[in-house]
Design a protein around this nucleic acid. Sequence first.
RNA 1: GCGAUCGUAGUCUAGCCUGGUAGGACUUUGGCUUUCCAAGCCAACGACCCGGGUUCAAAUCCCGGCGGUCGCACCA
Length: 499
Amino acid sequence: MMQKVMEIALKRSILIPSNELYSPVGGFYDYGPVGKALKRKIEDCWRDLFLRREGNFEIETVYILPEAVLKASGHLSCFGDPVVGCSKCGKKFRADHLLEEKGNFTCGGMKPEQLTKEMKEKKIVCPECRGPLGDVGWFNLMFKTNIGPTEGTTGYIRPETAQGIFLDFQRVFRSHGSKLPMGIAQIGKSFRNEISPRQGLVRLREFSQMELEYFFNPSSPKHPRFKEVENEKFIIYTREEQKKGSEKCIELTAKEAVERKLVPNEIMAYFMAREMQFYMKLRIPYDVLRFRHMLPEETPHYSGGNVDLEVKTSVGWVEVIGNAYRTDYDLKSHSQSSGKDLSVLLEDGSRVIPHVVEPSFGVDRTIMCMLEYCYREGGGAERRDWEWFDFPAFISPFEVAVLPLMKKDGLSERASEIANSLREKGFDVIYDETGSIGKRYARADEIGVPYCLTVDYDTLKDGTVTIRFRNDGKQSREDSKTLPEKLHSLSEGNVVCLP
RNA sequence: GCGAUCGUAGUCUAGCCUGGUAGGACUUUGGCUUUCCAAGCCAACGACCCGGGUUCAAAUCCCGGCGGUCGCACCA
């Protein structure tokens, strides 16, 4: 399944393997014209739902961060793994795992030197060959670089977009109303030097995130619009079931999830309900979406509770959103490290460091899930034997393809006119006159174009064109003058809107 | 990073064992056919992962590297 989707994605240049001309390294993908358009429309849909409708703000911050920032945020010491190698067989192991297996022992936050000391004291040897282990090293997932010509000014390429938001928080807060709650978001690239990138877009070294940091007063962890979604349902995979090794999940409304304390607070439950709406708009079915309450040991260093949204795919459950209750961890850390007060003034005159709930979306993974769930096989009752993508019209890279039945007799010219007039009206149009008409239908289907307009000899006579529908192949004739209105009405059920 | 396995046009593949003009299919492009679901006919474009060695001669044999896939481990 995944393979077929990737095949067609590569064939139509939805995706392009990066650096293909040289020895490509894993974990990097380029987006071709179709993939980029798809990505842009998904991001715009997200902006509409999570920013515009909510009154939240979007900013853009830099990719390269000086070491001090990541030191304060905890990424330098926590964002990676302590590894130790066997000097006899050469195998590598997680130092903390070996220690913790030995007994009641947790290594959270321990430095490599401490771990080396502990390993020596506990006389831990290689679990494979009983050989001696070397010193504990640190594998950090961040890409390191030098800033400026002087050695020693170390920078890292950001491992998440969130830090930039925390650094700019105070200025944005002061200039945009100075009231909690306030949401500040960023869409952009992040970078992680993964050990082994796998499975297409699932684990990349350079990937796009859509992150929203929702700052609120910890004494009232409420969302003003919670009522709108309190009865929305979703599926939760609880910690208890995970510990039992069972796959059983429970279905709850947002309100029930808060009451039963399965989510840290109402704000997170609010976003979870919105996330369900977002993914269902993208044609990911309700019953393949589940929220997994992360176990304490998998929770990141900054977190007061994480709930991931996972999508069931042909390669297993894939995390597409990490919802994190980051508390005041980040602002507090930056405040302490920089010496600047990052608390805000409340209406009653007191000061508080805001708490943060963060929904963090993986764009590339979302695209991969969409490709899988929009993928349709040909054959069967269909009159065609090729594959296509059933993208909703509002997210299709191209909304309409204009195709002259033939190149000659003025059909090309007439079709070009129609294509250009639709472009002027704001439609994303693809014009294609090469090959047979059947071939062009197939090509349009493969990139998920919902409507094909065919210009034929009747068009020259009476100005009508054929609209051919992607999903059932049916056709109808329409006056070319009223096409924009007709196409709008056809797409009406697909326009971005909340229920 | 370890183990297994693989590397020939955009895709699938023949050739490799036994060294001697790299062949086919689909796709793509142009042309013909008054042509609506990858039709047909004609033509064109396009490949041996990289480097070294052996040899008169390497896609083929040998060595090294790089990369892919799958397990393990790890991870969002």
